[in-house]
Write a protein that binds this DNA or RNA. Sequence first.
DNA 1: ACTGCTATTAGTACCAGGTATTAAGTTCTT
DNA 2: AAGAACTTAATACCTGGTACTAATAGCAGT
Lengths: 189, 189
Amino acid sequence: MRVPKKERQRLLQETIERNPFIKDEELSKQFSVSIQTIRLDRMELKIPEVRERIKHVASEHLDEVKSLSMSEVIGDMIDLKLDDSAISVLDIEKEHVFSRNEIARGHVLFAQANSLAVALINDELALTTKAEIRFSRQVHLGERVVAKARVMKLRGDGRTDVTVESYVGEERVFEGDFTIYRRGEEEQA
Amino acid sequence: MRVPKKERQRLLQETIERNPFIKDEELSKQFSVSIQTIRLDRMELKIPEVRERIKHVASEHLDEVKSLSMSEVIGDMIDLKLDDSAISVLDIEKEHVFSRNEIARGHVLFAQANSLAVALINDELALTTKAEIRFSRQVHLGERVVAKARVMKLRGDGRTDVTVESYVGEERVFEGDFTIYRRGEEEQA
DNA sequence: ACTGCTATTAGTACCAGGTATTAAGTTCTT
DNA sequence: AAGAACTTAATACCTGGTACTAATAGCAGT
């Protein structure tokens, strides 16, 4: 029931990480020590009080919601010449990868490329109708993917061909040929 | 500066919705009324105190994180025969659509199809290497997309061809031919 | 067995951001 | 001018802490 200090602190850290909502009182019961001991432990481990922990979780949440609804593009657009070319950057984070092997999921790279291709079109309505894509190398957690889109052909009938190539450093990791429909309301993005 | 009660309460509700972290004191300054008035307003509007609001935001966040890491599939898998066929369902919600026209973004449908195709593979490591996709009709906010994946060919070299067709009711909205690599570590999903 | 050190517990004062309640103005309206 | 609706004030109390001081327990070394 009663474990040594080091062990207790390890478990404490884990416990709080798993459930940031837990109060000192509950923790003290769980580890069969006084509240004061728990507080000393938190001090040593630099773990803030419940309310601060909850606030932190909540603000992370808000950040996420914001960054999702703030832009219609996945990744940060760093250059845009309408109907010509565009570049966006995406840093691969935890939520983008398979937890098993820390390799980015295919649809993340696709999403970056697709949203870039759509943003490139100088028209109110732009929807992807077709795409042909190749993943040439895995992308790992922590890597930075730079996607470069270029308009290849502006067809008369409202279709535009866009090619996107994504790189990590010098290496190409993704390639896609997109056909984007503009204006009309009959196709799908 | 000083607005009538009804108006103030409307603004109060909005303000708190936009920023759940705001305290009564700040609110009272913003509306140039006393703290007590703010508290009466909250009572009438059944808006809980700051800490409860923050807690609520935080717990929503935790739910999300859980449901994200719980399944590696976008959408709900409702049928799965490994190396044969699988079906998943995805309800199109606000976060899936362009705010301008409420049409689902292409990469949402792609993500559903791609993750379904990958999940279908009976192997530890499965990564998409190639895909050819067609969006045959727009999908709107509120619609339910049913994706059906079927293994077409199990090649000897570790490659598997999977076809995914997605429907809203009877109508096909998406079609994709995926090549999935299994086992090896040289390709990308 | 006594010293010395760490670890633990106890106790008190204080804080933020409230709730709950009672009472006293203030305004508007009729 | 009277009554109702609205606003402010004042006070006691709550939770989940911080900060600090002080007492006690447990054990190692000599």
